[in-house]
């Protein structure tokens, strides 16, 4: 598998991790996987929710020491 592009959004309250994902994913080629790092518990919910609405694929979602790592593949 190709390695994911890291989007380090730890400590981001504004614009916040989801906005950082939207910013990054717009400019990537279809098929690219982005891995968002977030220190906000809300990301584990709102990133998958947006990915579903926007038609992107949730690859994985994990948490370690309060850091959430969520992988999303650009599907369209």
């Amino acid at each position: 598998m190709d390695t994911a592009k890291i989007v380090d959004a730890r400590g981001s309250y504004c614009p916040g991790p989801l906005m950082e994902l939207i910013k990054g994913i717009r400019r990537e080629a279809i098929g690219t996987t982005l891995e968002i790092w977030s220190s906000d518990r809300g990301s584990a919910k709102d990133i998958p929710e947006w990915a579903a609405r926007a038609g992107h694929e949730l690859v994985s979602s994990t948490e370690e020491d309060g850091i959430y790592k969520i992988q999303v593949r650009k599907a369209r």
């Binding site: 309250y13 614009p15 906005m19 939207i22 947006w50």
Partner: peptide
Amino acid sequence: YPIGRPHSLE
């Protein structure tokens, strides 16, 4: 607004 609430800041 782009995300799931009306502003980034809760």
